[in-house]
Design a protein around this nucleic acid. Structure first.
Lengths: 191, 191
DNA sequence: CGCGACGTTGATTTGCCTCAACGATTGTGG
DNA sequence: CCACAATCGTTGAGGCAAATCAACGTCGCG
């Protein structure tokens, strides 16, 4: 049986009957992934997309100076992959690993395409999911254009309240685009 | 008859027969829109999405200090709307206007939903289009995290070669996230 | 226990902003 | 078609936000 959290994610946007849920289940792989374990390495091809049931994954890139830049946090209920590599089947520029012990469902590109034919409603589900991801990515672009580092930090705390106490602060710094030292100074200004 | 540029955009991702093209045509409105004319004002609801046949539109927000921040340029072959407002039917935070005299096709949210039932393949088309928009938005996030202003400008010139000579330089500055004065200084550095 | 990762703090540097002044270009009304 | 205003790009002086580099205390983990 599919996990309730995944079923909820589907039924928020489309209606699936029992039969369809079963077909979907046959195309997904449930997996536990330990803290610091990798889901995708850069230069590989992203064969898979992951839906997070519990825990948290992240995607990040490494620039030419060797510093990491976090593109996405995926706490429970979120999908994560290197979308560019996943749709083009070209080399990935992102790494994806687990920040906490996590449970995920894995969907391969191949199985996803099969599912689109077997359960056409899933086109709608992924269209809507992707639209929402686009809205949030574009909002992040606007935030970096409009807000100061301090405002971005405050906003981050509101958007990801669960993450603040469960991951190292330097990862938050990386996500909002400041150095760990500077974030520390921002927080010292007044709590 | 539908414009060739739009047909091409569809057929890159899905196959439509003549009948389906006709149905789609009945749900689109062709319109010419003059330079500086608005397609969407903030605080309104984005009822419509636009596909650009010729010319160029842009979306931008205005921050609390009154300065504009450009979120998207839409030259020919691109779709543009305030996606957040379009899917939630809530108030828009973006303005969309024409940078050049342009020709567009207008698709209302209502007609889009009807089309998803009449021509289910369109779910796939919009899913793929949205995936690509997501890839490019996330790449932009990474660029602001990884690159200097000068590198972002160089990259912009490569990605939008057609725009550099047809729109004011200060709009490019706004898009890459620097002041017009600073961009001018960057360009002066060499050649 | 001891090491390495993490957060903090301080001194210094720098990338980019702000403000202001000035030509050049554009466009607009008479 | 010209005159004038508005917009635009450039340049310079000065300022600030955030980066860099370095030192140090703490803590969790092997």
């Amino acid at each position: 049986m599919l996990n309730k959290i995944l079923i909820d994610s589907f039924s928020k946007h489309i209606h699936l009957d029992i039969n369809e849920e079963e077909i979907i289940e046959q195309h997904l792989v449930y997996k536990k992934i330990k803290k610091r374990q990798y889901f995708l390495h850069e230069h590989q091809t992203a064969q898979n997309s992951a839906f997070v049931i519990s825990g948290c994954l992240r995607s990040y890139s490494i620039d030419e100076n060797g510093s990491e830049h976090i593109l996405q946090f995926a706490p429970e209920k979120w999908w994560i992959t290197d979308m560019h590599s996943f749709i083009s089947q070209g080399a990935s520029r992102l790494n994806i690993d687990a920040l906490l012990d996590s449970e995920i469902y894995i969907l391969s590109r191949e199985h996803q395409n099969k599912l689109f034919d077997l359960v056409p409603k899933l086109e709608r589900y992924f269209r809507i999911i992707t639209e929402k991801a686009l809205v949030s990515s574009r909002q992040r672009v606007l935030d970096t254009l409009e807000l100061t580092a301090k405002e971005r930090y405050t906003k981050f705390c509101n958007v990801y309240p669960g993450l603040i106490n469960s991951i190292p602060q330097k990862l938050i710094a990386s996500y909002i685009g400041v150095t760990p030292e500077f974030l520390s100074k921002l927080r010292a200004e007044q709590f």
